[in-house]
Amino acid sequence: MIRMKKSLPGTIFDVLKYVVLTLAAVIAVTPVVVCVFTAFKTEDEYAHGSVLELPKSFLYLGNFKEAITKANMLRCFLNTFIVLVVVLVCSVFISAMLAYVLNRFRFPGRGLIENLFLFASLLPGIAMQVTIYQIMYSLGLINHLYGYMIVLMGTDIISIYLFLQFFENLPVSLDESATMDGCTYFGVFFKILFPLLKPAIMTTVVLKGVSVYNEYYASNLYLQRPELRTISTALYAFTGPYGSKYNYICAGVLITIVPLLVFFLLFQKQVYSGMAAGAVKG
């Protein structure tokens, strides 16, 4: 990295650098940290103290208990978990298989199909839900977890791009030598190429995993029965009578965030590189 002799402007720059970064980091975490404080406060502390005060003890878990039972969060976690696993596995296979065919075979209509997928990424998702809702309704897919999973798989363009890009960098000679040895095309894909797709699979799982975990719009639209709620929409249980009981709400918020935080801390590198590779603006 850069080493310079410590001159006066250099020192000032260094000090400023840390001040700016610290300020930014503090601003970034403040809204969440205040939530953490509030989640551990008893009814009494919440009602009378300042919001910025630390709770008396970080062992008071009453709010969490209340949040978990009120919003039926365990059930919501289970729903989210099922959706996550099924959607991730299916998405990886669907996109990898499609990318394989589009990248390795030349056939009439190939260009058209690739462009159809390209154009699809232009259509704003939320606008499309107006008519997708109508289709889901006529197919009887509303209020079923599998219906929701199908929607999430069906509107997945990013992972297809990731795999298409990845295939471009896999040498065709791999396929050729395998076919020479008598491997079928299916064999080439499943035995030779699929194991090599690991990095692309990782990226897809990270990106898609975070977006599925956080998806709330379609979930709210297609899973209206409370027992079908996913963890992202579980918090809706707190609108209404709980309107301003932020000690419970903050506890609920934290419960939804913690799994992500753990995941993020464990896979920081992969998350960053996944973001760079898949750069999707919220």
Binding site: A24, A28, P31, V32, I231, L235, F238, V253, F264
Partner: peptide, 24 residues
Amino acid sequence: VFKAAMFFPYLICGIAIGFIFKFF
């Protein structure tokens, strides 16, 4: 640490962000 603190808000679910800022 700085990077993680700045980046983490991006990973929080939209609904949770809604509640965080209603409170904020």
